[in-house]
Nucleic acid binder design. Structure first.
Length: 405
DNA sequence: ATAGGGTTAG
């Protein structure tokens, strides 16, 4: 039964339960416009989901192009419920075996943070094609970022791939290399590199970026440099950024900043990630005034507004240099609520400095944001003990006991 | 006439 449906969907699209019509084409195109513009819809009535609802209200049947567009707009955990409802509709309208729809479903569940559902869709594909494989691998890797136990399982799965007729391509390998980098799995990464060479895949900017990132994260900065220097195109901001961050990571601050200047003289426009790499390098190298310069130039000369990570780096930069007032100024200037990384940076700066009052504030904020983090309670009660505020010491200990489940 | 998969930071 399933085989028949698949045959129809992949070889004779016209035999679908719903044929493409001029009407469905127009609604699909409208949805695509909103998905591709990537800007926030002007109002909730313009989002692909409400376009779909209006399409149904007008009695227009969706066709097999409709759902990939619609599913692409569900890319956050909060959309999981909508995604599930649309999945049910997909079954009702008879498209659950369309390979495009299946891949879109895997990506939707993966973007919504639900690997289980993504895996379930994948498992129901009798003969997954390459995009489906790449999507499920990507989903596993993404979750590997969150779920530590799954990480090594995921890599093993890539390596022992039984691909009878579907072979990994550049898309696959870039995901695999990125996973190796995150894991610090140098041996797996080298294997992947050798595989790329053996298959005769061209190391373009994307694969090059992945290779540089992998080697840099795995401690092979020389190999990263080698890959970078061999790249044919030298105008890809991501490849430059990967190399710049890699050098910073390894403590080659001068080379890192030189490379940044070199990139600019090549006419490559830095982006938010490039600046993060450069500023992080300044943090580790203790280059306060240079870090501050880069931070200012980023918005003044390039119109890039700093993200919470950039602010976190700046707090870290000043904190490590013992400049607690400056670190506070950064926090006060932030247009968003500081997160645990920002308060953590302020905490470590103020601890180094012996600034007990700032420690107290930072720890209180950390406890507010992470009430189950017992480490912060312990540090805070130590702070109070140092100040001789014994009542507060007892109060914090009681609070910690309360939060324990 | 329209459709699915990739890289840099954290």
């Amino acid at each position: 039964m399933q085989g028949t449906a698949k045959l129809l969907s992949s070889t004779h699209p016209a035999l679908h339960l719903s044929h493409p019509t001029l009407e469905s084409f127009i609604w699909n195109t409208l949805m695509r416009a909103h998905v591709q513009s990537k800007t926030r819809p002007v109002s909730p009535t313009h989002c692909p989901l409400s376009i779909f609802l209006r399409m149904r209200f007008h009695g227009v049947r969706p066709d097999f192009h409709t759902f990939p567009f619609l599913l692409q707009s569900f890319s956050y955990p909060s959309y999981l419920h909508s995604g599930l409802c649309i999945h049910a509709q997909i079954v009702q309208f008879g498209f659950p075996c369309d390979p495009f729809v299946q891949t879109s479903l895997i990506n939707m569940y993966s973007s919504c943070g639900n690997l289980g559902f993504a895996q379930q869709v994948f498992n129901e594909i009798p003969q997954p094609d390459l995009p489906s494989w790449n999507s499920i691998i990507n989903a596993n890797v993404k979750m590997g970022l969150v779920n530590v136990e799954k990480r090594s399982h995921c890599l093993g799965r890539c390596k022992n791939w039984k691909l009878d007729d579907v072979r990994p391509n550049e898309f696959t390998m870039s995901v695999v290399l990125s996973a190796c980098g995150r894991l610090g799995a140098l041996e797996h990464g080298k294997w992947a590199h050798a595989y790329i060479d053996r298959c005769g895949m061209e190391v373009d900017a994307v694969l090059g970026t992945s290779l540089i990132y992998m080697y840099a994260k795995c401690g092979g900065i020389d190999r990263a440099r080698w890959v970078f220097n061999k790249l044919r195109s030298n105008n890809d901001v991501m490849a430059w950024s990967a190399m710049i961050s890699g050098l910073g990571m390894h403590g080659h601050y001068e080379e890192c900043l030189d490379l940044f200047s070199k990139m600019m003289s090549h006419g490559v426009r830095p982006n938010a990630v490039t600046f993060l790499g450069v500023i992080c390098a300044c943090v580790h190298g203790g280059l306060v005034s240079q870090g501050k310069d880069y931070f200012n130039r980023m918005s003044e000369d390039f119109g890039i507004s700093p993200s919470i990570q950039h602010y976190g780096c700046m707090v870290d930069l000043y904190g490590r240099a013992g400049l607690i007032d400056e670190a506070w100024d950064v926090i006060k200037s932030m247009p968003m609520e500081p997160d645990v990384l920002v308060w953590g940076a302020l905490l470590s700066g103020s601890r180094m400095r012996g600034d007990i009052e700032t420690c107290e504030v930072a720890l209180k904020k950390l406890i507010e944001l992470e009430p189950t983090n017992s480490g912060a309670y312990v540090l805070l009660s130590n702070v109070y003990a140092k100040m001789g505020r014994w009542k507060d010491v007892r109060h914090v200990r009681d609070l910690m006991e309360d939060k324990r489940d």
